Computed example of a mutant assay.
Amino acid sequence: MNPQKQQQDPTGEGVSAQQLTEDQAAAVTAWSQAQDKAEQGRRLVDEAASESRAAVTALSGLGMTQKQIAALLGITQGRVSQLIVRTPRKD
C-alpha cells in the first residue's frame, strides 16, 4: 500500500500521509513491502507445487512405479500417489 494514500485505522478515523512522521511512513512502506513479498511467496509455492506434480507424473508416465519414484525423490509412496495427476484413459 502506498503511504501517500489515505490510511484507515480500526476506529475509522482517516490518517493522511501528511500526518505521518517519517518513521511512521517508513513503517507503512515496510508493511506494504512485506505484503508484496508474502504474495510473491504464495505464488512461488503454487508454482512449485504444480511443477512437483508434473515431475512426479512424468516419472510415472515413463514407467516408474510409485515405490521407485518415492525412493528416488526421498518421499513416501503415499505422497507420490497424491502428487500423480490423474488423467482420463483413452479407450
Rank of each mutant, 00 (worst) to 15 (best):
V80L: 08
G41M: 08
G78Q: 09
Q4K: 14
D23I: 07
G12N: 09
S52M: 03
Q6T: 15
L44V: 02
L83T: 05
G61D: 10
A17D: 10
L44A: 15
G74N: 02
D46P: 00
T87K: 15
D9M: 09
D46V: 09
R53L: 01
L72P: 00
P3N: 05
K90Y: 11
R43N: 08
Q6L: 11
E51M: 14
M64P: 03
Q8C: 03
M64F: 08
L72Y: 02
S60G: 13
Q6M: 06
I84Y: 10
V15Y: 05
Q40C: 05
A25I: 00
Q19K: 13
Q24E: 15
A17F: 14
I75S: 08
Q6W: 05
G61V: 01
S32W: 05
A55F: 11
L62P: 01
T76G: 15
L73Q: 04
Q7N: 12
Q8P: 01
S60E: 11
G61R: 11
D91W: 03
I69E: 03
L44C: 01
S32F: 06
Q8Y: 09
Q68R: 11
A27H: 11
R86E: 12
A70W: 11
T21Q: 11
Q82D: 14
R89P: 09
Q33E: 15
A34K: 10
A17H: 14
W31G: 02
T11W: 14
A25F: 04
A71E: 14
D9K: 09
S50I: 08
A71K: 12
M64K: 15
A27T: 04
